[in-house]
Design a protein around this nucleic acid. Structure first.
Length: 822
RNA sequence: GCCGAAGUGGCGGAAUUGGUAGACGCGCUGGACUCAAAAUCCAGUCUGGCUCACACCAGGUGCCGGUUCGAGUCCGGCCUUCGGUACCA
């Protein structure tokens, strides 16, 4: 009889729900284990295979931990604010709130069908005032500490989504992370969170968390710490000072010109009258370039002199000041000292514009007079550097920095590539910013007791570049709480990454009302022990959450330094090489497979496909293999109904007292237990399932020939191993053999009998000069002398050794016997 | 350009500290069952050579070289693919 998955899945799902099997007792924190998967964005596309691939295997891991005795908390919720719902509203006229609620309802049903052990009492969604009120509260705390501020700056603007984006949300090809449209630069006044205040700590903290090295290195690069020195250059005939940042103060004597970012405010002040026109023309010419064109490393560098000269503080040399597109206003001081001899960019630029090149670092094995064909960027002996001549340049970095600091010509400085997090968005479907703009008082933060500032339902959606909230008169017009005059609310909403930067706290008591979260619980249950989600969040969500976590800790709201102790990225499931997405129309609907095969088969198949962290291209080719495994398993258990009522197996058997088949079965089940344990623990589901398939093959062959006791022993263990990977099937199978109660109610785990792991017989490979010539079977742990006798009686060995001299013999116990002949 | 990961049968993928390459599964081929098909079960399946067949021989983990009794695994030099990053001074 085929496994009636539909009936059995609903039977056990009902049982689990009625018996509150997955309700976590949060008061019990012994062996607590917080397992979390990144929450879901509730779009109309519902669950696709990628979601399943994320949630199914993670749930298997969580169930495995539960069986091993952990008190597991595994919640699920909805990242419910965001652009797609709003774009959908623009297209169809369906309000984002309504479409989101409908989607959540559908997705919840799909999630329930998956049969994961989510604690549904902890479900949360971010688009309700009870949740986003605390985004606003968080904003106010940051504001109070000066960590939320507004400034006018060149920012990334997505013309399609009609909103600004954070740096992290612009992809390396200059397109929008959400919609793929080319992002442009605009000068706008926007809200920022000062993540840069935590740059150093965000960097250091990476050493304390067990995350994939890849992800940590991406964050390190993104933070981009760089230590160097700021050097002050006086300007000839001017009181202005140009401060440059350099990591190579040792090359200061080699400066032949200075470059300022074209947008730098000093440019207008310093440009001499005869250069005004050229400078203006140049600034115009780069304005028309897109960000990618401008920062492309293959593009030739451009620039113009501004007519003014700077004075090198160490040798009083007069060098020309240029503006060039390769100097970035947003990094360091926006000004660069150019040392063409020892910097590739400066070298290329100097060659193009015939600027002088002065060598000040000597490459070992070259002469001072040798011509440079390219910039020499390594260390060496300092030359042409006054009193610093002869020093090694590494030492020179320190010596010149000391000198500059003593003379007040500069100071050591650490710079970060990380920029502040731009959090305001000119969109509707997000958290309103709790600030009032008063013509008299300026920015007036809302009082905490007036939160939440609710998002109004009625607004104009059509994107005009203006925040939709500005169209709702009742919302936008307000009396200044300070002075009573007519004022306006801030019309922007927050980046949805604010919502997700602290949601893992909220899960523990999503209905808590007095504070942002229930610290009684969160102090005991956070950090999250295991976090699973896509690698695409490496420098976005995963960085923001670490920042907010540290900020909350500084306020005394949490007792840990990091939000996620362990992190795993599931691989990406692609379809014909491209990532599944609704816009590309290549989404594979998992329902097709769950309807045909059931959710356990589908879950098994996803896990069996390959290494979890690799993902892969979607194909349903092998799913029949998982189906067969399930059918054969079900059939096997049905051959031994209520066996546990008829016999109570021992917890261990003496292997010597077993007959041949029993020994084989007993050994295999224990070997499988050990393998399974190691593999699942490390998210290597594919090999764990392969081991179970091997076990099933063994049982199909030999179980019937075993004693009742061995049969019961084996099936009980097989059933328990099955429970994390195919929960519905396992519950049913265990019930068939007579187990009372759900295995997830009275959890049990069987450790392998270590004595049963070793085989009696070892296969020993015989090699001549490293080539396999024969294999022999001998009792395990046979000594060399014993093996040698048998090896040299082997016909093939005789054939190969005959007439030759045996030079060496290598013996590895139970593995190989290699004879080296000449 | 730089940083990181990966290249193994027709396909997805296994392989402890260097120790019998191809576990497990898909697909395919042959057989059993069946009136027939599906399902199921059994056998075979890296490539080439030779053989009626068994056996045997040679080659084989992206390419070239090295270390070693022995290399998918270690070292050096390349090639390709995929992620990340992009003038960060």
């Amino acid at each position: 009889m085929r496994y009636p998955f539909s009936e059995i899945e609903s039977k056990w799902q009902k049982y689990w729900e009625e018996n509150k099997i997955y309700k976590t007792d949060l008061s019990n924190t012994d062996h607590k284990l917080y397992t979390l998967v990144m929450f879901i964005y509730p779009s109309g596309a519902k669950l696709h295979c990628g979601h399943w691939y994320n949630y199914g295997p993670t749930d298997t891991w969580a169930r495995y931990k539960k069986l091993k005795g952990f008190n597991v908390f595994e919640p699920m919720g909805y990242d419910a604010f965001g652009l797609p719902a709003e774009n959908y509203a623009i297209k169809t006229g369906i309000h984002p709130f309504d479409s989101t609620m409908t989607n959540i309802k559908d997705i919840r049903q799909q999630l329930e069908k998956m049969g994961c052990m989510y604690d549904w009492d902890s479900e949360l969604m971010t688009c309700v005032p009870q949740y986003y009120k605390w985004n606003q509260w968080l904003f106010l705390q940051l504001y109070k500490k000066g960590l939320a501020y507004r400034k006018n700056a060149p920012v990334n603007w997505c013309p399609k989504d009609q909103t600004v984006l954070a740096n992290e949300q612009v992809q390396s090809d200059g397109t929008c992370e959400r919609c793929g449209t080319l992002v442009i630069q605009k000068n706008l006044t926007q809200w920022f969170f000062k993540i840069t205040d935590y740059a150093e700590e965000l960097l250091k903290g990476l050493n304390e968390i067990n995350w994939p090295d890849k992800t940590k290195s991406m964050q390190r690069n993104w933070i981009g710490k760089s230590t160097g020195t700021e050097v002050k250059f006086k300007v000839e005939n001017s009181d202005e000072i140009i401060t440059v940042f350099t990591t190579r103060p040792d090359t200061l004597f080699g400066v032949t010109y200075v470059v300022i970012a074209p947008e730098h405010p000093l440019v207008d002040k310093l440009t001499t009258p005869e250069f005004k026109e050229k400078v203006a023309a140049y600034k115009d010419s780069i304005k028309s370039l897109t960000e990618i064109e401008r920062t492309s490393t293959v593009k030739e560098k451009t620039g113009v002199p501004i007519g003014a000269y700077a004075i090198n503080p160490v040798n009083s040399e007069k060098v020309p000041i240029w503006i060039a597109d390769y100097a970035l206003l947003t990094y360091g001081t926006g000004c660069v000292m150019a040392v063409p001899a020892h910097d590739e960019r400066d070298f290329a630029f100097a060659n193009k514009f015939n600027l002088p090149i002065t060598k000040v670092i000597l490459e070992a094995g070259t002469k001072p007079g040798d011509e440079l064909n390219s910039a020499y960027t390594d260390s060496g002996e300092m030359i042409n550097s006054g009193s610093f001549n002869g020093l090694n340049s590494d030492e020179g970095i320190e010596k010149i920095s000391d000198y500059l600091e003593q003379k007040d010509l500069g100071r050591r400085k650490t710079n970060f590539r990380l920029r502040d997090w731009l959090i305001s968005r000119q969109r509707y479907w997000g958290t309103p910013i709790p600030i009032i703009h008063c013509p008299k008082c300026g920015e007036v933060p809302l009082d905490e007791k007036d939160l939440p500032l609710e998002l109004p339902y009625d607004v104009e959606f059509n994107p005009s570049g203006e925040s939709p909230l500005a169209s709702n008169k009742n919302f936008i017009n307000v009396i200044c709480p300070k002075c009573g005059v007519d004022a306006k609310r801030d019309p922007d909403t927050m980046d949805t990454f604010v919502d997700s930067s602290w949601y893992y706290f909220r899960y523990l008591n999503p209905n808590f009302s007095g504070k942002i979260f229930d610290q009684q619980l969160t102090d005991k249950w956070t950090p999250v022990d295991m976090y699973v989600g896509g690698a695409e969040h490496a420098t976005m969500h995963l960085l923001y959450a670490r920042f907010i976590h540290k900020f909350l800790r500084d306020l005394g709201y949490t007792n840990s330094d990091e939000p996620f102790t362990n992190l795993i990225h599931q691989g990406t499931i692609t379809n014909q090489g491209t990532k599944m997405s609704k816009s590309k129309g290549n989404v594979v609907n998992p329902d097709k497979f769950t309807i045909e095969y059931g959710s356990d088969v589908f879950r098994l198949y996803l896990m069996f496909m390959g290494p979890y962290e690799l993902g892969g291209d979607w194909s349903d080719k092998g799913i029949t293999g998982s189906d067969r495994f399930v059918q054969r398993t079900y059939e096997l258990f049905n051959r031994f109904p209520i066996i546990l009522d008829r016999v109570s197996p021992k917890s261990k058997f003496e292997i010597a007292g077993l007959n041949g088949e029993e020994k084989s079965v007993y050994r295999k089940v224990n070997q499988t237990l050990k393998k399974y344990d190691e593999e699942i623990n490390n998210f290597r589901f594919n090999t764990a399932i392969a081991a179970m398939m091997e076990l099933l093959n063994e049982l199909a062959k030999n179980l019937e020939k075993c004693s009742l006791k061995i049969q019961a022993y084996t099936l009980e263990r097989f059933g328990v191993m099955l429970a994390p990977v195919a929960p519905h099937l396992a519950e049913e199978c265990l019930e068939i053999i007579g187990r009372k109660n759900s295995v997830f109610k009275n959890t049990v785990w069987f450790e392998a009998d270590t004595e049963a792991l070793i085989e009696d017989i070892a296969n020993i490979a015989i090699q001549i000069n490293g080539k396999l010539r024969a294999t022999i079977q001998l009792p395990v742990n046979s000594e060399q002398s014993y093996v040698k006798d048998i090896v040299f009686k082997d016909e093939k060995v005789i054939k190969y050794v005959d007439g030759k001299q045996v030079v060496k013999e290598i013996f590895v116990k139970n593995k190989i016997y290699n004879i080296v002949v000449r």
